[in-house]
Amino acid sequence: MTTAMTETTKIRLADFSFRYGKNEVLRQISGQFFENRLTAIVGPSGSGKSTLLSVCNRLWTELPEAKVAGKAEIQLGGEWRDLCDRRAPSQQLRRKVGMVFQTPNPLPMSIFRNVAFPLKLAGIRDREEIAQRVEDSLHRTLLWDEVKKRLDSDARLLSGGQQQRLCIARSLVLEPEVLLLDEPTSALDRTAAAGIEELLIGLKKDCTLVMVSHYLEQVERLADGVFEMSGGILRRLDSTYSR
């Protein structure tokens, strides 16, 4: 490793490259994301920011033509896991590394079932436990009061901001150690975006957050560390934005 190790390192990359078909998306990048911090990744479209997020929860393994080289690891439950191993089981890892996409993507289910869905996937069957965890998760995302009387309604009928908070609640219900956010406010209006920002600040105490964003003002407001991705190269910008 060329980067300095600290006890709060959650994700570390060393000379990591990502290739999709003939296209080299990430080129020998190195860096660390720290525990209970919000690290932002900025940069132009198509520079590889979202690809980097898909490496952090091994979602890249779903792409048959993707190939990786170098080192990428994540620390979960005090144990380092290899993110480059295509054959390693990824389900447990993904339950601890939540992901929120750019466009709110509630599944065509009720609000309750959307948030309870990851628990069902994890094999949790106790109805009381599920109900309690769904409620807790909706409280954490400041959505409970808005939806508690219509938990059986179609989640797709919520407003854009509410849908995105629902998606965050759905990720949080599994109590992840890391939450990956791919431009979580880009499809929302200013008020809804402010609500998400407030939520993210509150989540830092429980989670490590890695966020891709195009909005520099937002990054200034939220981020503890900043990287710039350009042409597949990752560069630290902490000197500009560090707190």
Binding site: R94, G98, F101, N105, L107, P108, F117, L121, A122
Partner: peptide, 24 residues
Amino acid sequence: VTRRTALALGASKLQNILYVLLPN
């Protein structure tokens, strides 16, 4: 995005097909 939603939440490939892709 829909295809990756359940996978990102820890679904297996079969769970993704049965719970998300086919109902969709």
